[in-house]
């Protein structure tokens, strides 16, 4: 999109957001005339503005945490329930996988700790890191 076109798109967008939801569509239609592409651009922006779910609506810190933050520091003790954490098996964008051993039974599992940033909001305040168990880790 060139800057002239962009000026036009945002001019209509900025006028539309001053209106109530109910009035917007008719306004966009009349402002864009038969330029369907223009109307499409404006409508996509209005939808995004309503959704507020892009990266830009997320806190930078949670993004920083997800990209470069330290997952391991969340595990303050090397104990997790009945499991003793032995070593990190793998680390990636979606969390850290630890090799762990059940202290009483002695069987080994892989436990994956998820970064909070990857979790739905309602789990984000949990005291404990979310985790998933993988029982098939005895051969690791």
């Amino acid at each position: 999109m060139d800057s002239t076109r962009w000026s036009r798109v945002q001019e209509i967008f900025l006028q539309a957001i001053e209106l109530s939801e109910a009035e917007r569509d008719a306004f966009v239609r009349s402002a864009c005339g038969d330029d369907a592409e223009l109307a499409g651009e404006v409508r996509a922006m209005l939808a995004a503005d309503r959704r507020q779910t892009s990266l830009l609506d997320r806190g930078l810190l949670s993004l920083a945490y997800e990209m470069v933050g330290t997952f391991n520091d969340s595990i303050s003790s090397r104990e997790f329930g009945p499991y003793r954490l032995i070593k990190v098996l793998g680390e990636g964008g979606m969390g850290v996988v630890w090799l762990a051993e059940r202290s009483d039974a002695g069987n080994r599992v892989a436990i994956k700790f998820l970064p909070h940033a990857a979790l739905p909001k309602q789990y984000g305040t949990s005291e404990f890191p979310a985790c998933a168990f993988y029982a098939g880790a005895s051969n690791v």
Binding site: L61, A64, Y65, V68, G69, S74, G124
Partner: peptide, 9 residues
């Protein structure tokens, strides 16, 4: 950024 801890976000 690398030192951002789990609870910060």
């Amino acid at each position: 950024a690398g030192a951002v801890r789990r609870n910060d976000p």
